[in-house]
């Protein structure tokens, strides 16, 4: 199967699942209604609730999956994932800081302010983990994961501290959002995430050859003529932007960056020429499907998508660890 065929295949599946998901929910909305004209209520549900939510799920999924690809190349290990190594909880701390402190200081908090703060902390955590776990171009995987545990703990505690001093109104929005939720998505948020996701994807796709070389180690990457330092900065920034903005908008959704790149690698191998675009599509497909599931299983209520992904991703991570023990890499 050629690369173009694979991309078309995933795109077709993605669009089909999006269309199916659009029709599912407490208000009936079928393709036939769409053909014959939507009622006012249906139109409102379609344009203000379902459509933004599904588009957002696709964007967040694509962004998180590709941020996983980027971090895995940076750390040269398939277990590097924004949630596991603390980048997501750093971003969450940044966002909560703005909700609570910004709320007290200047009143209404805007999504770009949360995004900026989340991005800054995500970038800070990425750099910190990199400095801790990587020396002389080699990453100590155990150190990387353990440092992630420590940062998750500290960021979680600081977030908890901020929550304990927050007002009731802030508290509700914080908790709602910390579980990872796709409800209450706005078109403004989509425009923001859509533009940064496209930009970061373009930057990373342009770096596909040096990223392949980076898998061989910094030394070899340099010997193959690629500017390793600037490559690392670009990869860190791009992945922090993807994680920061998506966490600021929908909260922490874990394991997307672990599962999707892993499955795509099993399918096409680790070459970034295919890994980046296919992971973006695969991540979108995974989150759109998961969101559909989260809305369908306990109707009329819904599962927070972050919870659902943790339920799926946790066992997946364990399986990867076991597999890793078997082959010894």
């Amino acid at each position: 199967m050629t690369a173009a065929l694979r991309m078309s295949l995933l795109s077709i599946i993605l669009v089909s699942v999006m269309v199916l998901s659009l029709q599912s929910g407490s208000v009936n909305l079928s393709l036939i209604d769409f053909w014959t004209g939507l009622s006012e209520q249906q139109s409102l549900v379609f344009w203000e609730i379902r459509m933004p939510r599904i588009v957002m799920a696709a964007l967040v999924g694509a962004g998180l999956a590709v941020s996983g690809v980027a971090l895995q190349a940076l750390f040269r290990n398939p277990l590097a994932e924004p949630g596991l190594i603390g980048v997501s909880s750093g971003a969450a701390l940044g966002a909560v800081m703005v909700i609570v402190l910004g709320g007290a200081l200047w009143g209404e908090v805007l999504s770009w302010q949360m995004s900026l703060s989340a991005f800054a902390l995500a970038a800070g955590v990425t750099l910190l983990i990199y400095l801790i776990a990587t020396s002389k171009g080699h990453t100590d995987v155990a150190l990387m994961l353990l440092a992630g545990v420590a940062i998750n703990a500290v960021a979680g505690a600081l977030t908890g501290l901020l929550i304990s001093v927050s007002s009731d109104v802030q508290l509700r929005s914080v908790i709602f959002w910390m579980m990872g939720s796709l409800s209450g998505v706005s078109w403004d948020g989509i425009a923001l995430l859509g533009s940064v996701t496209l930009l970061a994807l373009a930057v990373l796709y342009r770096l596909r050859h040096p990223l392949n070389a980076l898998l061989l180690g910094e030394q070899s990457c340099l010997h193959m003529g690629y500017a390793v330092q600037s490559l690392k900065w670009q990869v860190m920034t791009a992945s922090a932007v993807l994680v920061g903005v998506s966490v600021a908008l929908v909260g922490i959704i874990g394991f997307v960056g672990l599962m999707v790149p892993h499955m795509v690698r099993l399918w096409v191998g680790p070459d970034h020429r295919q890994l980046i675009p296919l992971s973006a599509l695969g991540g979108a497909l995974l989150l759109v499907s998961a969101d559909w599931l989260a809305r369908s299983v306990v109707q009329p209520a819904e599962l927070p998508i972050g919870l659902l992904m943790a339920l799926l991703g946790g066992p997946f991570f364990l399986l990867m660890l076991l597999k890793r023990r078997e082959v010894g890499v």
């Binding site: 040269r76 180690g217 030394q219």
Partner: peptide
Amino acid sequence: YRELALRRAVLPQNPSLVFA
């Protein structure tokens, strides 16, 4: 480094790679 890469190649000791 780009010019160098076209003139010379380097095989380091114990090259490592954990991707398939």
